[in-house]
Structures are given as C-alpha cells and as structure tokens.
Design a binder for these strands. Structure first.
Lengths: 194, 194, 194, 194
DNA sequence: AATGAATGAGGGTTCATTCAT
DNA sequence: GATGAATGAACCCTCATTCAT
C-alpha cells in the first residue's frame, strides 16, 4: 500500500463517485470509470474485487463519517431540541460536502447485492430509531407534542433529505446556518403564522 | 385492440410494475416480465416497442391520474390551508393505492431515456412551483409565516414522500385520515408543544 | 381457388417482388410484404407455406417463361448467329419487362434453401451449356473463331446481364432493337475498328 | 495495437471473409465467425464495433488495392488498347487472388448500411466512367468502332466479372495470360471468324 | 502495480411462423 | 379466406471479469 497506490485508489473512487452520481450505478460501466480515472480497466480490479465492491466501499468509506457523527450526537446528553438542531446541521453539512454521495444514496438504492442493500437499510432504520428515541424523550419531557414518534422521525428525515434536490444544483456558497434555522423552525413550529 | 388484447396489455403492465418495484428497472429483464405475466418474450414487443417504452407508459398512464388531480386541486379557489390538506390527502391516497408505482418513482429516477427523465423532472418541478404559489399566497395573506416559499414547498413534499417507506411495508388497513391529520398538523404547527 | 383468392395471391407476389428487388430477401420481412399488399400477416401463410416458399414461387413462376423461351430457341434449327441474336433479344426483353425479378436474380443468390439455390444454379448451368453447344456448332461450322466454348458462353451471358444495371435505371422507352444490335455486334465483331 | 492483437484482427477478417463468401452476409452470424476464428464472441467487438463495421472494413481494406491499381492504370499515358488489356489483367488477377472477396462483392450488394452501399456503388460507377473515357478516346482516335461508350464499358466489365463464376470453382493453376488473351481478343475482335 | 486484449453469460430485440377467432 | 395477437428461437451486442505480459 504505497503512497502511489493509495493515490490511484482515490482516483478511482473519485471517478466512480462522479459517474455514479451523474448516471447511476447501472448506467456506469467499469470501462467508463477506468477512462475517467485515466487508468486501464484491469487496474480497477487490482484495487477492488468487483464493481459491487467498489460501489460498496465508496458508500461505506465516505458514508461512515456521517453515520459516526450522528451516532455520537444521539448519545450526547443534550436536550432534545439541541440534538434535533445538531442532527439537521450535521446532515445538511454532509449533504453539501458530499453532494455526489448524497445523490447516489438517495437515488440508487436498488442494486444487486441484497446483503449490502439490507445493511444500508438497517443503518437507515437504526438512524430513524435513534432519532425516534430523542423525539420520544422530548414528548415525555413535554417539549414535543404527543404523537407517533416513528412517523415524526421519518418525516423529519424526509424533510432534511428533500433539501438535497435544492443543494445539489445550488452554487458553492450556501448559508448553512440559515438553512438549518429554516428547517429547525419548520420542524418545531410548522408554517402557521403565530 | 380486442378485449383480450387489452387484458394481455394490462397483465404485462402489472407484471412489470411488480418487478420494477421489487428489483428496479435495470435488475428486471424483459424475460422476467414475460415469465411473470405468463407470456412469451415476443408478446411484450407486440404491445410495447421496447423496455424503455414499457417503463415510460407504465409511469405515464398510472401516474397521470395523480398529476391531474393535483393540478385540479391547485387551481381550486380554496384557502391555502384547505389546499394544503387536500394536497397531502391526495398524495397519500395515491401512495397507498399505488405502492409499487410510488416505490418506482422514488427509487428509479436514474434510467436511460434522458428525454423522459427530463419530462418527469419537469413535472415534479412544476408541482413544486404550483405548491410554492399556494404557500406564497398563504404568506401574503398572513396565514403562513414568511420565509422561502420554495424551500417550504420542497420540504412539505419531502415530508409527504417520506411516508412512502412506512406505507410500503404497512398492512392493508391504514387510517388515511389519521396520517393526513398528522402530516397536516406537523406542517402547520411543527412538533413543539403548545 | 376462387377469383378473389387468386387476386390476393397476385397482390402478395407483386408486393414481395417490389420489396425483394428494393431491399433484398433478408431485409424484407413478411410483415412488410403483408403491409404493402394491404393484408394481414396471417394471410400470407394461407397462400404460401413460408417466406422461402414465397420467394421460390416468385422466381419460379415469373422466371419459368424466360427459361422456356430460351430452351425453345436453343432447340430451333436456326443458324448459330440467328440463335445468338435471338438469345440476346429474349434475355433483354425479359430484363426490361421484369426489371425487379432480374434485379433479384442477379443480386440475391445467397439465401437459405440450399436445394433451391442448387436448382437455380443448375438451371443457369444448363443455359450456359446449351449456349455453349451453339457456340461450339458455330466454331465447327467455321462461323465462330475457335476457342473455349464455355468461356465464350459465360462471357456472352455476362455481357448481356451487365445491361441490367443500365436498364434498371433507364426510363420507360428503351430501344430494344438498338441494344440488341449493339450487343450482337460487340459479341460478333468486338470493338476494334475495321 | 500489439503484434498479437493485429494477428487476432486478421484472423477475424479471414474467418469472416470465408463465411461471408460461403453463406452471405445475413446467413453468417457473429457467433459463427467467432467460432471459426477460434475466439469468443466478445472479441469480435473489441476489434470491430459491429457486424456491419466488420463487413465494411473487410471490403474496404481488401478492395482498396484493386481500386487503387485500376485508378493508377487509367491515369497512365498508355494506348487505349494497352490500358484495356491491363485492365482485364488486373481485374482477373484480383479475382483469382481474392476469390472470396470477389464472390462477396458480386453477390452481397444488398445489405443494411445504405451509406456504405452507396459508396460502393459510386466507386463502381466511377470505375465505369473512367473506363468509358478510355473507350471514348479509342473511338476518337479511330482505334475503336464508334458507339455508346458507356454501354461498351459496362459490357466489358460485365464480361470480365462473369469470369468469376469460372475462376471461383477452378483449381489452383489457372493460366492467367491465356484468360487475359481470351477476353482481350473477344472484346477487341468478337467471336466471328476472320 | 498496471494494462488491454479476451471472454461469455446475459439482455434487448426481431421476425418467421402458428392459431384461435 | 383473413386476421392479428402470441410465440420463441436466434441474433446482435454489452459489459463485468480474467489474465498473460
């Protein structure tokens, strides 16, 4: 695992990320990735055992950070409101810094490897459940209105994710704080005046 | 176009719908569709000129209803709140009655035919813009709190769509009214107590 | 075999002739023939057992005339020169009156049915041999210069056939007598002056 | 483009040539070509983008030589007679050395790619026109008898081509000079004695 | 480490042919 | 006699994967 080798590996991941985001998993061929990375087709197989594996590692490696951050956050002893706001911020920042990966995650969840698909699904479910716990705590503490904590958690994540379509086409300079405030307020107070 | 022929056509659409929802567009072969429909491969091509065409017609025909309903609604002279609530209801009912199509629409938006992809994208955009107008009207009338009407519209649609993951796995009897109320309240008042 | 039935049959043959001449055997589908004849696909199979059979009958029926005429001619007790000239005339007239069939015969001799292919080949060979006999007779009688009678016969037929490319694109009014004279003279005297 | 790669390419061309000559373009499948070349199907597509392309390159590459030779000849400042004789010689030699290609060129002129078909047709036409000019010159110089130079050129080429049916089935040792003399004399003097 | 030629399973599509109506 | 929906073998072609160099 020399310096050079590692660099090549990153090149491949970068090329793959771009193409998967642009055209989706199935419409992207290994040949296309190799070409964009400026490498021979064979080289891809020296670094990744298969196209599926490449895709998985792409998602795992880059997505790991978000998952870890969120998990840490949810274990924090903050107030439900604070956790909620941070949850939004972390997801948004991730979406901005990883536009392509987000695009992939939100549009390509139908591919071959059932095991991996399940794993991602589990992870998503876990995230929902953790958020649900926070929501539940907020309800129990009388901070949040009573209701289905699961539906609420799902809806919150849906709202945040929906921003992807906006962020993906936006220019470089996005006022994250503003977007966070917007979402937080909408989740907390809704859109009704007063 | 006899009675029988039309029935066959519907069979194909049904089989295709199921498989596309289950495994996605690319992972579904024409052979698999034919087999599930209990037909020969060639028959599919008597009714649809290509796999792309089959997919397009599937989405167009079945999706047309939702689009029309929503458009009618948005042209109604109702109050913004009423329109919002009806918007939610219509989308939810569609999602329940067309679980498979919804699944497809939310997970397969990356396929070959760029023209059709664009058309769907345009339609989605139009929907957002129409909802945005309603939101804007509500803001102008002092019913809704001021803010980005676009972000609000996108977030609302995101919330509604997020319910798909819940509805898709749910049993038959879902209390739609309850779900509508839940979403409407959450959108209007948020989750904060009081 | 009613009047009507026979008419339908002729329609099919006509449509097939046109298409085979235009696009060749393999590039012409039964569907295309049916469409041009203004009939359903199934109807073709009521009149002809297969595409091959249709093609064969097309060639046989229409080509039979030429074959018979030539055979009769070659059995005549005319002088070699007269037979040669008549040979040319009959072939040319046939080519003009059956442009499409000639086009087919000269460009589609590579198709499936080996047996029929062989039959046509045999017929062609027989024609050559008969002409060869005439040539030989002419040589023996001192009318024609001595040489390979086979090569001569083949060359003569080649010359006549080559006119097809001219006749096919020519307008309606072709002076046959002139063309016959041209070929006859060229065959007899060559192109040298004096 | 290594040594080996080039060899594989030639193998494919050789196998394709044989099969196209034997059975024609449409009756020859890519699978059959691959099998005869002792290669996998996919390999054909590494070297040629499609079956059409393979066919085109086959004809272009191998046919180019004849075309070039004839063009050079026709630009020579030789006497019309000499050019005519050389014309015959070059065509005959080509037909003997490229029996299969000649067979293909004379029997498969009805295939898909209209553009290429036109190109070949144009080339043929050009050849006729060039020969026609020579004939015309001969007529003007009083060497050849007056008449339609076009018909004469077409007839000459027809005669030469007709030899293909003889050469194709002939054994290895053909006396080219004799055949050339035969054709030349027949064209010049015809078959009449004296 | 890297390459590109080679492979073949698999997929979309065509089309001659059949057959119930 | 006529039709057109249905069929499936056969075809062209793609592409993930392998491997000798």
């Amino acid at each position: 695992m020399s310096e050079q080798s590692n660099k090549t590996r990153e090149n491949i991941l970068k090329a793959a990320m771009e193409l998967f985001a642009e055209k989706g998993f199935h419409e992207t061929s290994m040949a296309a990735i190799a070409k964009r990375a400026g490498l021979g087709k064979g080289t891809l197989y020296w670094h990744f055992s298969s196209k599926d594996e490449l895709f998985k590692q792409l998602i795992s490696e880059k997505g790991e950070g978000l998952f870890r951050q969120l998990r840490e956050l949810l274990n924090q002893k903050f107030s439900p409101e604070k956790i909620l706001k941070e949850f939004i911020r972390i997801k948004l920042i991730f979406m901005i810094e990883n536009r392509e990966l987000s695009q992939i995650l939100l549009n390509n969840m139908q591919f071959t490897d059932q095991e991996f698909k399940l794993k991602l699904f589990q992870r998503h479910k876990e995230m929902v459940q953790e958020l649900q716990k926070i929501i539940q705590r907020g309800m129990d503490e009388g901070i949040f209105r009573r209701g289905s904590s699961r539906d609420t958690a799902v809806a919150i994540i849906g709202m945040i994710n929906s921003m992807n379509s906006i962020l993906f086409f936006e220019d470089e300079d996005i006022d994250i704080t503003e977007k966070v405030e917007f979402l937080y307020r909408m989740i907390m107070c809704g859109i009704k005046n007063e």
